[in-house]
Nucleic acid binder design. Sequence first.
DNA 1: CCGAATCCTTTTTGATACTG
DNA 2: CAGTATCAAAAAGGATTCGG
Lengths: 126, 126
Amino acid sequence: MHAGSRLPDDVEPDTCAAFRDALDRVGSKWGIAVIAAAGEGPIRFGELHRTIPGISRRMLTLTLRTLERDGLLTRTVHPTVPPQVEYTATDLARDLFASTRALSAWAENNHEKIAAARAAYDDAAT
Amino acid sequence: MHAGSRLPDDVEPDTCAAFRDALDRVGSKWGIAVIAAAGEGPIRFGELHRTIPGISRRMLTLTLRTLERDGLLTRTVHPTVPPQVEYTATDLARDLFASTRALSAWAENNHEKIAAARAAYDDAAT
DNA sequence: CCGAATCCTTTTTGATACTG
DNA sequence: CAGTATCAAAAAGGATTCGG
């Protein structure tokens, strides 16, 4: 019965899916920045907007909603006037952030190699 | 002199940028799957196409080119007929793949919590 | 201050057909 | 076999405006 497929049918159907799953949470353009900013303790909408350079109010709102929905952020409304809303990273988010460190470190350690590889590839294409 | 901004102006401008940088290499829909498949040793285009369910030839080609350009894959053409091309992950790619493990593990360990958080959020929105 | 609602542009991905 | 070329669709992101 043509024996066993030795192919690693499990190294990616499992691990890859999990990785993509994680990316669905922090893979958006601003996801990790928001989590990092909210990881220091409660932070208000306006502060986030100022702290994260370049983000629009719209994208900040969308990102916050998604993260809140997934249980990565808690949202607290203080019924003052004007309204005041605070966001805080959950433990789940802190774990997640910690888990991104390896990837960040890889990028920091290797971006020169990558730049070199690109340069080589690109001018070989001349 | 309103002293020092205690804000973590470095926890994200640095780490976050590096993380996004890594995502620019494995954040595409098929990037990590291709690296995983090519991490076992040389693999041919057709094999990749069969091994990775759902990928189109076009997307496979695009993904392979990007990864090759960044030095994550080596491409070897055997001038046979019909043509035969093999792709292999570089050490750089292996390190990268290893660095994704933490994130994958986080996703595997917590996808239930996330699902629960979502469910709670969604039917609170009723 | 915090956000929702609209509209628009850019980026990514996919379906299909063709080639050395 | 290993791609390329085109076209179309969808998703993500951004600019702007309005409201409680």
